[in-house]
């Protein structure tokens, strides 16, 4: 044992070119596809909107300071876009985030192995389907022309005429959140199921001897034991609050529900790619990145103060 440790130490000290080159391949990749774009942020501080040759103008055009950021804040769309993005983000955090935790706790209560496997197989499935397909199914379900939901509601006599679910902006948040819950709950619970499996059985035995019932065991034993996992995922979820998930929003969006469905992700795509407002779009992107980093840092500090563990 002492011998092996000696070899290891010698190895560690020697500069190994092969190892270094392998790591450098990753560094080179990130330099090109992550760090060069970060330097591209200068575009946000120049006026390159609608230009035909960005690279040439990037050299010649003067800096315009924070003009593009001010333009975004004063834009007629700013309020709509930010409200929708934040509302969906908060709803996501309050509704979509905790549901998989409760789902995992319930799954843990199913004693029948076959039953549990069956529930897992069925509820994980929607996660692997693209939002294009899933959004298409949601659209078909909500259709006014014989869609399942409208037919069912009319069959039950709850409504007289079909509800315009997707053409009425008021329903948009609910549609996105409910379909995300259906699509993501099963798979979202996998991490928690894994964490629960790692909980020491002796704690349960001890709780049982103390006369704890199942609800108490779930809330007082399981939940505290998986709290570190929840914290990490919560912090990641908070930092992602401004990312609404382009695919699902874009899929369910239509011109009639834009007042509630336009979010930063879709807005950036439209002004950047369709309208070619390069500087403006970059400014919006930078704004978004900075807010995300601030949220992550704030969450991390709060969590370290409250629970003693954070992301970094």
């Amino acid at each position: 044992m002492i011998k092996t440790l000696g070899v290891r130490k010698k190895n560690r000290r020697r500069f190994n070119w092969q190892i270094f080159l392998m790591a450098m391949a990753g560094v080179l990749f990130l330099a090109i596809f992550a760090y060069v774009p970060m330097f591209g942020i200068v575009i946000a501080f120049k006026d390159l909107d609608y230009t035909m040759n960005v690279m040439a103008d990037l050299q010649s055009k003067p800096f315009v300071g924070l003009d593009n950021f001010i333009k975004f804040i004063q834009d007629a769309q700013f309020k709509t876009v930010m409200t929708n993005t934040l509302m969906l983000g908060v709803l996501e955090l309050v509704i979509t985030f905790p549901i998989p935790i409760f789902f995992a706790l319930l799954l843990n209560e199913i004693r029948n192995n076959f039953g549990r496997r069956l529930v897992q197989t069925c509820t994980y499935f929607p996660h692997f389907i693209s939002w294009v397909v899933f959004g298409g199914i949601v659209t078909a379900f909500l259709s006014t022309d014989g869609g399942f939901i409208n037919s069912a509601l009319m069959g039950l006599g709850l409504i007289r005429s079909p509800v315009q679910f997707l053409s009425n902006a008021d329903y948009f948040y609910a549609i996105v959140i409910i379909s995300s819950v259906i699509k993501g709950t099963g798979w979202g619970s996998v991490v928690y199921v894994a964490a629960i499996a790692g909980v020491d059985q002796e704690i349960y035995d001890a709780a049982r001897v103390d006369g704890a019932n199942r609800l108490q065991m779930a809330l007082r034993v399981t939940l505290p034991c998986i709290a570190p996992t929840i914290t990490v995922l919560l912090l990641l979820a908070i930092s992602g609050i401004l990312g609404s998930g382009f695919d699902r929003i874009y899929m369910l969006q239509n011109p009639l529900n834009l007042t509630r469905s336009e979010v930063l992700d879709t807005y950036i795509y439209k002004v950047g790619i369709s309208q070619r407002r390069f500087s403006f779009t970059t400014a919006v992107g930078v704004f978004r990145s900075i807010v995300a980093v601030i949220l992550l840092e704030a969450g991390n500090i709060t969590s370290k103060k409250l629970t003693g563990n954070g992301l970094f």
Partner: peptide, 25 residues
Amino acid sequence: DNLPFRPLIYWFNMFTMFFGGGLIP
């Protein structure tokens, strides 16, 4: 463990998970 500058390379990697240049760049 014998990768030179491991902590530095690690943070070079991690940083990209939280910050990016955005769509246009």
